[in-house]
């Protein structure tokens, strides 16, 4: 049997979390993992360690402590300014091989997945991707991961007995974010960096945040139908709050309220967001084809008999102009939703 580079015996009783940061702020999913990791560590009496990589990011360590980390292993170097899979895998590998944690968790973000996939092979261990739940069996020291497949139709529990670290990725939003405790303190361990610029093959040519529509790839979709009477401002506000984008049925497009590129449906864009919110949409077949792949469908319609409700998880019989403002108000009161 294939063996990991270190085994159960050498592994330390520690849960490691990859602390993903963007512009000096920790990603929501990292905070969620810290909280979950804290609970598991407390239960098993293990330690919780955050791995923080970047350039001039040492200040973030305090945030990690306040969310539960006992220790932050810090890799700070100009070459680590933006994420490149080459550099980050190398640094993470060095850190892991030095400290030999038993569990290593990452957010299933594009970067988290890139890193996890390469690292698992490099240390010859298993990787449970996109877990929907995690549990640390404290007697055996084994991480039990729940994953789903087949569009969520099948759930499986997965574990590894002989390989370390036990790696898993978790999508943003699976675990609730914890409450920070500003008084919590921890220890920072600096990692010596042995990177050469020319070993980094990946070049970031362009990076634009907050621009461009590709409705096929959005995580959340707010659709306005004829029933919203062209009030796409309302739709945009909601979409902005949940990190999504706006689509429409054909009639508002016909009436010139919104660009044709945003028409959802058989003859428009077919989307597969995590959530779609249909506002004042009746649910014609040509439209439904465009949102049927959504993980969750929410619909708001004044007509209880509207066919859209047959394709909906959460049905709201009500006036868009009452429900949506109430919803945006409720959402504005929480700072921001994590989105991945």
């Amino acid at each position: 049997m294939v063996a990991s580079l270190y085994g159960v015996k050498q592994a330390k009783k520690a849960i490691w979390i990859f602390l993903e940061q963007e512009g000096g702020k920790l990603e929501g999913v990292s905070l969620e993992l810290l909280d979950k990791g804290r609970q598991m560590a407390d239960n098993a009496n293990w330690s919780l360690v955050g791995l923080l990589i970047g350039k001039d990011v040492s200040e973030i360590a305090d945030e990690a402590f306040s969310y539960g980390a006992d220790v932050v292993v810090l890799a700070d170097d100009p070459l680590l300014d933006v994420f490149t899979v080459d550099a980050y895998t190398q640094v993470t590998y060095d850190a892991i091989m030095e400290h030999k944690p038993s569990v290593f968790l990452l957010g299933a973000t594009p970067n988290g997945r890139d890193l996890a996939g390469r690292l698992a092979v490099r240390v010859r261990t298993g990787l449970n991707a996109d877990c929907t739940n995690l549990n640390l069996d404290k007697k055996r020291g084994i991480l039990v991961s729940e994953v789903t497949g087949f569009g969520g139709g099948i759930a499986a529990l997965i574990e590894m007995q002989n390989h370390r670290p036990q790696m898993a990725t978790v999508r943003p939003g699976v675990f609730p974010p914890g409450e920070p405790d500003k008084k919590r303190k921890g220890k920072v361990i600096k990692l010596p960096i042995k990177l050469e610029a020319d070993t980094i093959k990946t070049k970031v040519v362009e990076r634009v945040v907050g621009e461009g529509v590709d409705l096929t790839q959005v995580p959340a979709l707010v659709v306005g139908g004829r029933g919203i009477e062209g009030d796409f401002g309302l739709m945009r506000e909601l979409a902005g709050l949940i990190g999504g984008d706006v689509g429409a049925t054909r009639p508002p497009v016909d009436d010139g309220y919104i660009e044709r590129e945003r028409q959802i449906g058989q003859t428009g864009v077919v989307c597969r967001p995590k959530v779609s919110i249909n506002c004042g949409v009746s649910g014609a077949f040509h439209f439904v084809v465009g949102v049927q792949e959504s993980d969750i469908v929410i619909s708001i319609n004044t007509d209880q008999e509207a066919p859209i409700f047959d394709f909906t998880d959460y049905c709201i019989v009500g006036d868009v102009f009452e429900i949506i403002p109430a919803l945006t108000a409720a959402l504005s009161s929480v700072k921001e939703l994590a989105h991945g």
Binding site: N128, I154, A156, D313, V317
Partner: peptide, 30 residues
């Protein structure tokens, strides 16, 4: 060559839509 093993398998919820109606005032629904 596979470190991981499946220890349990279950049929999760069907792919059918829930069709759950949320009721209340707009604020409660929100």
């Amino acid at each position: 060559g596979s470190p991981t093993i499946v220890s349990d398998l279950a049929q999760a919820a069907t792919r059918e839509r829930k069709r759950e109606f949320l009721t209340g005032t707009p604020e409660e629904i929100a």
